[in-house]
Structure formats: C-alpha cells, structure tokens
C-alpha cells in the first residue's frame, strides 16, 4: 500500500476530508474507525474538516465529503447542501445515505399519524402536543436518500460498510482510481 500512497505520486498537500452523520446511527463512522492502525497511514494523507471526529462546526472547502445517513428533517438538508457546496467529491456512505435505510421504513406511514400517535394519543408517551419550538428541525414528510437532493459522486454501500471496504475505497480514491469493491467487500447489509 505504501508504494501506492507514495509521496512522489501525491502533492504534499493533504486531502481535506469532512464527514457527517445525518439520519444515521453512527455505525458507518464506527466502521471507519475500525480501519484500526491503518488510520495512521491515512492521517498522513488526509486531514479532517467538519466531522464528529473534530470540533469544527461548519464545513469549509474540502476535497472529500463523506455522508452517513439519509434525509429525515430540514436540518439534514441544510447540512447536506453545505457539504455539497464545499466538497469536490461527495460520497454516500452506508445503506441509510444510499436508500434511506432503516429510518425510511417509516415511509409507508403518514407523518401526521406518526406525530399524532407519538405526541398526542399513544398511552405511555408524553402528551404535550407536537413540539413547535422553532429551534427544532421539522421532519420531512418522507425520509429520502441523499442522491435525491444533491448530486452524489460515489456510493459506498453496507450497513455499515466493512472497514476493509472503506479502506479500499479511500485508497483507490487517493490513488486516483475509480473505487471498486468486488466480491466480499460490496455488501448491502
């Protein structure tokens, strides 16, 4: 791998990467950390912008944006757009970002019924009415995968994608190859 990720092949400038979790479970981020000691190699090549791994609140100009999770509410849409504006390459990471995943299983229900049940009628749950605090992001009628709102350059499937798949994907990308996963690494589950 060192031969590929060779300083002579790459300009000294580090690749700037931002990551975020929209309507996801952080599973993909955990899997990312699972690349274990390889992250040290990676750190030589990339630096993080906005990410749960850093404390940066807003995404600046980046080379690569990794998005976990689909679009569940207005806030998700704003963050996704911020990423799209600032990242040269945007990657949908994981089932939720790619097809809505588990959160999208609410899509066959009417959102109004869901809100009503949760906040008003269902016994055992708080009956304070549907919260209307302007600080809270409003939920979308349906959950959507991110490619329905912005152009996505690459998709990295899996729930979560295995660490090896993430590693393969990133090293391909860093080396300027179109990422390919192949049998064993390409998984939808």
């Amino acid at each position: 791998m060192n031969a590929l990720i060779n300083a002579t092949l790459f300009p000294p400038k580090k690749l700037r990467v931002a990551t975020t979790s929209l309507a996801g479970c952080f599973g993909c981020h955990m899997s990312f950390l699972d690349i274990d000691e390889r992250i040290l190699k990676l750190i030589e090549l990339i630096e993080f912008d906005r990410s749960p791994l850093t404390d940066i609140k807003h995404c600046g100009p980046c080379d690569l944006g990794l998005i976990e999770g689909g679009l569940c509410n207005a806030e998700n849409v704003h963050v996704l757009r911020e990423f799209r504006t600032h990242c040269k390459i945007l990657v949908a990471v994981g089932a939720c970002a790619i097809n809505g995943g588990l959160p999208a299983q609410r899509n066959h229900l009417d959102l109004r019924d869901v809100l009503e049940e949760v906040y008003q009628t269902e016994p055992g749950l708080s009956h304070g009415g549907v919260p209307n605090d302007p600080e809270l992001p409003l939920p979308l009628n349906k959950v959507h995968p991110i490619h329905e709102v912005v152009k996505v350059d690459y998709f990295l499937p899996g729930c979560p994608p295995p660490a090896d798949a993430i590693w393969k994907f990133l090293t391909d990308l860093l080396a300027g190859r179109t990422p390919t996963l192949g049998h064993g690494l390409l998984h939808y589950d």
Binding site: L111, E116, V130, H144
Partner: peptide, 8 residues
C-alpha cells in the same frame, strides 16, 4: 416535503 410537519 415539510408540509405535514408545518401543519402538525
């Protein structure tokens, strides 16, 4: 897509 939440 926010219509239902606005309504509620």
């Amino acid at each position: 897509a926010l219509s239902q939440a606005r309504q509620m």
